[in-house]
Every structure is written in C-alpha cells, then in structure tokens.
C-alpha cells in the first residue's frame, strides 16, 4: 500500500476556539446512524452551526472562510486544548476531513482523536500556550494568509510568523514516510503475531 507522504500541509486556516470540544459537538450522535462515512462532512459541528429553530448561528464553521476551505478541500483548523475529547468515534475526524480540513493545530488533543486523525493522514500539531494564542489571533486577523503546517520540520508558519510545533515522534514518522496507515506494517508482522498468540493461554483456548 503506498500512501502520500504528509510532510507539509498548506491551506487557509480557520480558528475554532474553546477548550474541551468533545466529539459529540464535532459530530452529534444522530449522524453516527450510518454504515459508511460518506456525507459526514456537511454535518461537522451541526448543532453548533444550526440552532434548534433550524436557523444558522454565528459559528466559525458558517463563515466564508470555512466555505473557502470546503471548496479547496484543504485547510487548517486552529483549535484549543483537549480537542476531540469524548467518544472514540472516528466519525469526528472523518467529518472534519471530509469537510476539508487536512491539518489541525492546537494546544492539546484527546488521544483517540489524535490517533484517528493520524490514521487518516491528517496531522495534529501542538503549539505552546502562548504561541497558540498568537497563532489563533493571527489567523483571525489575516484570513487570506495561507498557513503551512510543516510536519517534517515541526513548525507552523503564516506570513512572516512562525511557531515551533510538536507531535508524537511515531506519528510524525508515519506521516512523513507515507506510513500513517499502519495496516501494511501490521500485516507484515503476521508470523510474529501467530507466535505471540501461541504463548497466550486464553487465545489458544485455555
């Protein structure tokens, strides 16, 4: 399986502020009633974007900037801390990715969300608290400026600004080497897997 090497993601950026944004907010549970991920993009942040009255509410995802990202099918979402906490639903990164986001920059990410995104080839980079505040302010003030998320060199740049970023070494390695989907490596280990299985009493049926 050959996958694209994700060394760098470039695109317009959208700030979606707030800490502890959970996966129920990213994709409400009713949209999990499906057997494929198709069509999830349009429902990302649905209940934040649309009021109970069915009318649009002010939300970054309703902005012209979001529409530009959706049209380009590439873009960077700048988020707060503990983004993607809550359930394990891969529907959350799937919906944002299908909407058009191809990278996330934030203060911290919930672990399952981070793993699910990485497996889609979507990097989640972390900035320090102060840098994140600056980055967030910059992208709001300069929506037309493209942001570059450099996974190889661990830096986020926008115009003349740049911020040092970090990501788990294994995730970086997978992304830049085109091995962000681990299935090929895992399949390769099959003989060793059988060996391990043979040592586990409960697996061999005891």
């Amino acid at each position: 399986m050959s996958l694209a090497k994700v060394t760098q993601v470039k695109g317009l950026a959208l700030a979606v502020p707030g800490d502890d944004i959970d996966t129920d907010r990213i994709i409400p549970a009713r949209f999990l009633r499906c057997v494929t991920f198709d069509g999830l993009g349009e429902h990302a942040f649905r209940d934040e974007r649309t009021g109970p009255d069915g009318l649009e509410r002010p939300h970054p995802m309703n902005s012209a900037q979001a529409a530009r990202i959706a049209a380009a099918k590439q873009g960077v979402m700048v988020v707060g801390f503990n983004f993607g906490c809550g359930s394990s639903r891969e529907h959350a990164p799937q919906s944002l990715w299908r909407f058009g986001f191809t990278a996330f920059v934030g203060g911290s990410f919930a672990e399952i969300f981070f793993g699910n995104s990485t497996t889609l080839g979507v990097p989640c980079l972390t900035l320090s608290k102060d840098d994140l505040a600056e980055c967030d302010a910059f992208v709001r003030a300069n929506p037309e400026v493209e942001v570059t998320v450099d996974v190889q060199n661990l830096v986020v740049t926008a115009g003349a600004k740049s911020w040092k970023a970090s990501i788990a070494a294994s995730a970086r390695d997978g992304l830049i080497n085109g091995k962000w989907d681990p299935i090929a490596d895992l399949l390769e280990g099959a003989p060793a897997v059988d060996q391990t299985a043979g040592t586990l009493a409960y697996v061999v049926g005891k």
Partner: peptide, 15 residues
C-alpha cells in the same frame, strides 16, 4: 477504546 480504522486493524491482524 479505538477508532474504526483500528477496528479494521484488529480484525485483519489481531494487533
């Protein structure tokens, strides 16, 4: 707890 792609990984490789 794992994501759906990881469910695939476990189904296919048990790892």
């Amino acid at each position: 707890g794992i994501g759906t792609t990881q469910v695939r990984d476990v189904l296919a490789t048990q790892t």
